[in-house]
Nucleic acid binder design. Sequence first.
DNA 1: TATGAATGAGTTTTCATTCAT
DNA 2: AATGAATGAAAACTCATTCAT
Lengths: 217, 217, 217, 217
Amino acid sequence: MKSRAIDSEDKAVRRADILAAARRLFLEDSHQLPSVSRIAAAASLAKGTVYLYFRTKEEIFTALLAEDFAGLLNEVHQTFSAGTQPDLLAHFVERYVAYLDARPELLRLDAMAYSVLEQNLSDAQLRSFKLELTQGLVRVGSVLDESLGLPSGRGVSLLMRSYALTRGLWQSLDFPTKMRALLAEPVFAPIRPDFRAELVQALQEYWRGAMASAPTP
Amino acid sequence: MKSRAIDSEDKAVRRADILAAARRLFLEDSHQLPSVSRIAAAASLAKGTVYLYFRTKEEIFTALLAEDFAGLLNEVHQTFSAGTQPDLLAHFVERYVAYLDARPELLRLDAMAYSVLEQNLSDAQLRSFKLELTQGLVRVGSVLDESLGLPSGRGVSLLMRSYALTRGLWQSLDFPTKMRALLAEPVFAPIRPDFRAELVQALQEYWRGAMASAPTP
Amino acid sequence: MKSRAIDSEDKAVRRADILAAARRLFLEDSHQLPSVSRIAAAASLAKGTVYLYFRTKEEIFTALLAEDFAGLLNEVHQTFSAGTQPDLLAHFVERYVAYLDARPELLRLDAMAYSVLEQNLSDAQLRSFKLELTQGLVRVGSVLDESLGLPSGRGVSLLMRSYALTRGLWQSLDFPTKMRALLAEPVFAPIRPDFRAELVQALQEYWRGAMASAPTP
Amino acid sequence: MKSRAIDSEDKAVRRADILAAARRLFLEDSHQLPSVSRIAAAASLAKGTVYLYFRTKEEIFTALLAEDFAGLLNEVHQTFSAGTQPDLLAHFVERYVAYLDARPELLRLDAMAYSVLEQNLSDAQLRSFKLELTQGLVRVGSVLDESLGLPSGRGVSLLMRSYALTRGLWQSLDFPTKMRALLAEPVFAPIRPDFRAELVQALQEYWRGAMASAPTP
DNA sequence: TATGAATGAGTTTTCATTCAT
DNA sequence: AATGAATGAAAACTCATTCAT
């Protein structure tokens, strides 16, 4: 039995332990969310204890996703608030992609979100998750607006579209190990460019087009 | 007992019936693939009969997805082979979006593909699915190449990126009914623009940037 | 479609074809009775056709078993009716074991008989199978009685007990392939003597004891 | 909900409850292993609970068989270690047969072992089962060796052959209820002597022959 | 006779969640 | 707070058998 987490700091630590365990297990096999049982074991806790910190399994993974999204927004925020640079856009793409590389579970979790995460969350939890996301997005969006001299709200739009492109490409290009071998045949070459390179190019194309257009009303 | 499908035409009809039933049920609740039991009932067949036409549940949904993708590629193909038009791009976007509207299950199924479809398919089935997709993509890609005077292979790339943008936006903007009410609060306005309008704009931006750039090597 | 079996000879041939196919498949994997589907395919017939010759799957395997038993009894019959020999008993054991070797499916089918075969036979079928067996046994038993100068009925008893010993030893000593490797460890040596050698010795011991005893009333 | 089995003693009790329920149901219909569902109900437990104590259905029946075998070996052990008696052999047969009578499921389970039990056990489970059996056999075998002054290893052999005879006879002579009526006709008399009496005689004959023979090398 | 399409009963196992201790 | 024993819903798939053609 783990020592009791009495004060709220200890509790936060325990909560973080559980999240870390879940993240670790998910990275080991991203085909499915690990079972609560395994998460508990990986965190050296009993199953019941996990439920003291999270009401449902889905809450765990929503929390993970929220963390990762917050981090991603934070990267973007820092990029654009770091003062004007000559090649701000290139800089943005670079940090953005680097962050995604460092958090390989982000896009995988996100890919499961539709079919899994929203199944078993209370309205309150869902709202809270979406609220945090929206607020972060709006905050960083307005940083973009300022930094790039865009009309209000344009930054949010650019961010959402950039992320959409990212997620969409990732889902096209990230293959489970088992499929890698299968798609090694030359005939499949057209559908398996490298994700990272592809993302960089696609983002550049998108932003070029977006910045060229008259600001959307 | 349904009348027997003896010749191959009848069989094709029966197969299509099953697919139609599966499509219908999936549209009713897109959070999970309907059980084979329910599909059989919806098609007025016995469970075992479904397994005469599809080896696994996943094969059913892969077939559905393949159909939808083929149709989408076909739309694009027709758009670009219909002779030069002054506003070819706008025309493309219009038909493309119209097709997606007519096939609301396409993007939902696609969103489940990563976590579900690839779980229980044989290598051969997977390969066959991907092969059909790739070949269609390459075929239509080259139509684009010709029609727009692009370097070889560029069309495939444009298609993949356009679809990535589509899928990514959809996953951001299509909310399950239950969530609609929740996100009606003004505070969520920034993350819930209309999918269709958003897609049109994003595609326009992307294509403007893509066509402006020097052809990628 | 196979040509029609009209006269009763053709039918007998077809019936034998089915039995041969079943036997072949069972020998390939003796863990379970092959499905009717596979038997039909192996006999180049449609599933329904098999049911024109056998009412149930179990009837097929009962027929197989009946054939093998009849053959075994025939061997014994010939052994003991071949005139007195100095070492009649040794001769019997030799031919008996040789027959079992030549019909490896006999003891395997027999081992499944309790749990499988009797599940789904009509009373009439069951009776017919047992009757044929009993009559053969009584017939050969009386040959033994005569040949060895035993009291009436003793031959049947000796045969049943000999076969019991055979079947019991076989079930102890015939291991599925998968188990072979497992039991290769020296610690298991005591439970895996060679079946054939073991059978020969055990039969010799049994018969020595049986012939020594005062005839059982 | 049953009261919780917290300490290991309670758990052993619960495990035993499950085994008892399985045994009871199997005796009611020995043609097939009862489903886990029925076992759980018979033990007044939820299905899932059964799986806390046994990993697979087959493990349940293997445990039952192991128990019964261990008990049988124990009987034999006690018989032969109880000091020299004038009619040691008769005494052995009596206790041996009495034990089998008291455990009617033993031989029935054993008859299913070939076709069923080994289907779904891990190698480790299989090995463990066989190991326990072998060790028990060797242990009791050496008691026989000592008690009867036999060459080392001869006891194991006698035990295996005796059990083979037992199992083989039982499979010939134990008829499912349904078949009893069928075989009541006089014509079947030769194949339906009483199992118990037959076993006693056959064992006596076998042992007489075995003890008469020069010790097998 | 031969075919093979259609039927549908039947069962194991997992795992999120609860709650007695 | 922590534990982990107990719960029970849920679903894919096989295959013997039937019967329309």
